[in-house]
C-alpha cells in the first residue's frame, strides 16, 4: 500500500506543476487531481489574502493583479514560519527589494516596513503612560539627565523615500500628493490604533538614542549631529500625545 508522507504531501502542495502524490484518490479510485488542488488553492489563496490584509497600502500601490502576482511568488518562497499569522510577511520588504520587476518603485520595501511596524504596534503589549506634567515639572538640568522607558508599541522607520506622505496619501481622503524627500516615521499607539507621525530632521536619531536608553541630553547631541537646528519640542510632543513614554528614570 502506498503511504503518503507529509513531506511528500508538502512538496506537491507548493509545486503546482507536480502531480498529486500516489495514494490519494477519489471514491471511485481515480488518482486525486482537482481534489488535491483544493488544498493547493487553500494554502496559496489564504496566504495571499493574509498579505493583502497585512499590507493594505502596498496592495493599493501595486493594484490587485500585481499584488496577487507578487504575493503568489512570495508565499512559495517564504511560507509562514509560525502559526501566528498576525506577523506573517516579515521577509516581504527584502523580497520586494530583490525583484527586478519592481526596482523602479524603490519606495515599496519601506512602505512594507512601515506597514509591518504598524502591525507590530497594533499587537504590542498595553502600557500606562506617564502624565505629561511629570516632565514639565523637571528643571532644565534634570530634564536633560532623564532617561525614558517606552511603551512596547513604539516603532521607528527610516527611509530615503517620502513614506509618510505616501502612506497618508493612500489612507486619508484629501491628503496632499507626496513630494520626493526622505522621511523618517515614528509610530505610537495612544490607545488601540497605531498612528504614524513624520519626524523632523534629527528626530530619528533623537528617538533612537532614547530607545537605546541614553539621556534626553545625550540624545539631543546625537540629533544635533544629524540636524544642527534640531528642536526636541515637536518629537517630544508626539511621544507624549502618543502615550509612548511609560516612565522617567534619573541619571545613573
Amino acid at each position: 500500500m502506498t503511504t503518503v508522507s507529509q513531506s511528500l504531501f508538502r512538496q506537491a502542495l507548493l509545486a503546482p506543476d507536480r502531480a498529486a502524490p500516489d495514494g490519494l484518490r477519489d471514491s471511485d479510485g481515480h488518482p486525486a487531481g482537482a481534489r488535491f488542488d483544493v488544498y493547493r488553492n487553500n494554502v496559496v489563496v489564504s496566504l495571499v489574502e493574509a498579505l493583502h490584509a497585512g499590507f493594505p497600502v502596498l496592495a493599493k500601490l501595486l493594484g490587485k493583479e500585481n499584488m496577487d502576482g507578487m504575493a503568489r511568488m512570495f508565499v512559495r518562497v517564504h511560507p509562514p514560519s509560525s502559526s501566528l499569522m498576525m506577523f506573517y510577511g516579515e521577509a516581504l520588504p527584502d523580497f520586494i527589494a530583490s525583484l527586478p520587476q519592481l526596482s523602479h518603485l524603490g519606495y515599496l520595501p519601506d512602505i512594507a516596513r512601515l506597514e509591518l511596524a504598524l502591525r507590530h504596534a497594533y499587537h504590542a503589549a498595553d502600557a500606562s503612560p506617564v502624565a505629561s506634567e511629570s516632565l514639565a515639572s523637571l528643571s532644565p538640568e534634570d530634564l536633560l539627565a532623564t532617561r525614558l522607558t517606552f511603551a512596547p508599541s513604539v516603532r521607528l522607520v527610516r527611509s530615503p523615500w517620502p513614506i509618510y506622505d505616501i502612506w497618508r496619501y493612500n489612507t486619508r481622503a484629501g491628503a496632499p500628493k507626496p513630494t520626493p524627500t526622505a522621511q523618517d516615521v515614528l509610530v505610537t499607539r495612544a490607545e488601540f490604533d497605531p498612528l504614524p507621525a513624520l519626524l523632523p530632521p534629527g528626530g530619528h536619531a533623537w528617538v533612537q538614542a532614547l530607545l537605546q536608553d541614553h539621556s534626553i541630553g545625550k540624545a539631543l547631541d546625537f540629533a544635533q549631529q544629524d540636524a544642527a537646528d534640531f528642536d526636541m519640542t515637536g518629537p517630544l510632543t508626539l511621544l507624549l500625545t502618543g502615550n509612548a513614554i511609560t516612565s522617567l528614570k534619573d541619571k545613573d
Binding site: 489564504s46 511560507p79 509562514p80 514560519s81
Partner: peptide, 8 residues
C-alpha cells in the same frame, strides 16, 4: 511541516 506553517 518542519519550520513551515501552511495555514490550512
Amino acid at each position: 511541516h518542519g519550520a513551515e506553517f501552511l495555514n490550512d
